[in-house]
């Protein structure tokens, strides 16, 4: 069965595209067939893909498509989704109604956040959108908040400490245990050098790889739980 994962946060620069690229690379490395869909008008994902093509660094097992409309997405999902093990959807970093059809198609929505108030609020909005679409369509799409671009200094901030109680206790959605650190390699990848998993393994890359493996393991677990509980959210 095709697993559909979307990255949604109404605030730009939270790390949606990066998170999806890393997850896609991991699934592709395992031999999966992964489709990535760019629904962001800024085309970050598609630019990365064409840059990769120019540098002859497109990864094996990943295809990238660009759809800017709900209809385009729906039609693509109907015609092509079955051919893939995983479909990862990148969305615009702004409040838009286009996220509704994305949530309707998704099994899991990941909202990446940096420890900043606006991004936490953006993630909460995304969660509420997921709840709304779930209720309207009788779906059980899961939602998780992923802390990204973490640095040593940011971990000492008050907001960082508050994220867990806010997300888990107040908002009551899932908070990924894995944190994605701010790493140079994640920036480098955007220049079109393929996926993280294609890079020669150095100490720095190994840390990023371990982080990504932990994240994907958590994603798998979240989706497996969903299957086990009969899609009861």
């Amino acid at each position: 069965m095709t697993v559909v994962i979307a990255a949604i946060n109404g605030k730009g620069g939270a790390g949606k595209t990066t998170a999806l690229m890393n997850i896609a690379g991991e699934y592709a490395l395992r031999g999966g067939h992964v489709a990535m869909i760019d629904m962001d008008a800024r085309n970050n994902l598609m630019k990365w893909w064409t840059d990769c093509q120019e540098k002859d660094a497109q990864p094996e097992g990943i295809e990238v498509y660009s759809h800017k409309t709900a209809r385009g997405l729906e039609r693509w999902m109907m015609d092509n989704a079955n051919a893939f093990d995983h479909v990862l959807i990148d969305t615009p970093g702004e409040d838009t109604s286009i996220v509704d059809p994305v949530i309707a198609a998704a099994d899991l929505v990941i909202s990446p956040i940096q420890p900043s108030k606006r991004e936490v609020l953006g993630a909460i909005d995304s969660f509420e959108n997921v709840l709304r679409v779930n209720e309207a369509l009788g779906k059980a799409c899961r939602h998780g908040v992923l802390r990204t671009r973490i640095t040593v200094t940011v971990r000492h901030t008050e907001l960082y400490r508050k994220i867990r109680p806010i997300i888990e206790d107040t908002v009551k959605t899932y908070l990924f245990r894995t944190e994605v650190f701010e790493r140079n390699v994640y920036k480098d990848i955007h220049n079109g050098i393929g996926t993280l998993q294609m890079q020669e393994v150095t100490d720095a890359i190994a840390k990023a790889r371990r982080e990504t493996q932990a994240l994907v393991a958590e994603v798998d677990q979240l989706l497996a739980n969903e299957a086990a509980t009969g899609r009861a959210a």
Binding site: D56, P59, V64, K68, R209
Partner: peptide
Amino acid sequence: SLSLAEFATAPRRQRSPATSVPNRVGDE
């Protein structure tokens, strides 16, 4: 256990010269 050998490196796609990959932006 930070041993580098445990990580496999992903292969890059073999570019076939005959079929130029159409730009997907046009699909829609």
